[in-house]
Design a protein around this nucleic acid. Sequence first.
DNA 1: CTAAATCGCGCACGATAATGCATTATATTT
DNA 2: AAATATAATGCATTATCGTGCGCGATTTAG
Lengths: 249, 249
Amino acid sequence: MLKKERHQFIMDKFKNVEKINTIDLALELNISEDTIRRDFNELHNKGLINKVYGAAFPLKEKSNNVFDITIINEDKKIIVGQKALSFLTEGQVIIMTGGTTNLSFCKLIPIDFSATIYTYSLPIAMQLSQHPNIELIFIGGKLQKKAMVTVGIDVVQVLSKIRADVCFLGVSSLDVNQGLTEMGYEVSIIKKEMIKASDKVIVLATSDKINGKMPHQVCGLDKIDAIVTELNPKSSRIKSFVEAGARVY
Amino acid sequence: MLKKERHQFIMDKFKNVEKINTIDLALELNISEDTIRRDFNELHNKGLINKVYGAAFPLKEKSNNVFDITIINEDKKIIVGQKALSFLTEGQVIIMTGGTTNLSFCKLIPIDFSATIYTYSLPIAMQLSQHPNIELIFIGGKLQKKAMVTVGIDVVQVLSKIRADVCFLGVSSLDVNQGLTEMGYEVSIIKKEMIKASDKVIVLATSDKINGKMPHQVCGLDKIDAIVTELNPKSSRIKSFVEAGARVY
DNA sequence: CTAAATCGCGCACGATAATGCATTATATTT
DNA sequence: AAATATAATGCATTATCGTGCGCGATTTAG
């Protein structure tokens, strides 16, 4: 039995059992404890298992992979993204904010779509890097780890110098009276700048963002050219926005 | 039986089996193990199979998840990374290049390590965003999709204005006479700038990078403060570097 | 605090790999 | 078709890898 096979065997076994004893596995596979220990050590070094005295445990399945981004309400966000596709035109210059709604949207963009896209979100950039015809420009700055976006004066400065055709804007909250509001001050500043830099502003939001209020205002409804949600535009939950004159899709 | 036929035979066989033993195949095809090994090596270099001690495996089909980064020769890179940890000091200002060797290194950095880190690599930034005490600054620019790093004048400009204590430099190739060389012109320019901006330069490289030559020179060995590989510094494979006066770890 | 279990390290040995070289097969040129 | 260059193959040698064992160090449990 090859080393690699044993490693695979161990990882597979952890799908069924919660703990593997060093001695037991040595007996089961008919090899020395030393080898098992070495295997455990190697797997431990790779960050695949937890090791304790005399045994090993599987790692808590909680996103041990940094790069695994879980999208909550993904089905709703996919609906939003599909509607938003109609706002894309070949050759546009686009500003794309962060957030999982925008991420879902980016996953739906046709693979050969051609455009220039500015973003300040790491996950969005990773996703869009798959598109060979998209010229992707990342706006650098200090990283805000929670949102995985860059913030700070550098970001604002870059934004102040560009002109985009359209901005796809993910949001914290959307309210009929307050308009668009953000949880973080820095992000609110940056989004203001993004709106200023774009001819059109398309807001992507699932219904759970509606009628919430966050401390920092970004803009009023009048600045927004389209609001895309997973709801039917005639839905009662979005009625107030339609009545206020917003273009809801 | 021609080489091409054998290669085809091997790839076909992987459609049915999960593992091909070196000896078994040699017996089956009635040719020497050497030839099989050479075949495995060639296919491995083309990135078509995985090779381990005594056998070969088919590549696990790359996941459709953009964020999944497969690190080849991960065990070697982990050794490099562990050695490189000794060059870290709390509170440093660090420049980190891209590449999977550096990525492995970043995974090994203690979770509570505190420093300021500049990078132009998306995967590295994603990884380091896990560390709460690291002030992470992403250098923006046009994204080079293949390497997942930003390039262009903006990157150079940012680098020209910073001073770092240490630069951890991943490389394309390392040669005793040519020094550090790169495949891409743009990246070579940027790495020059990174070296200029740093007091110390630590090169992280697995042995397969050694004695290769790429078209664009970055710097000579004299600019490098330390070369970290997975090899023992006394190994014959690295001997020429030691003799040339390089500090090999 | 003590005893038992477990661990890490160095060493030895057999298996597998890499390298240089001679030989044979294949491709290219004239 | 013959001559020559180029590539592929196998063998011998040396290097490297994986594994088990022994021993002292470390950890756990009572």
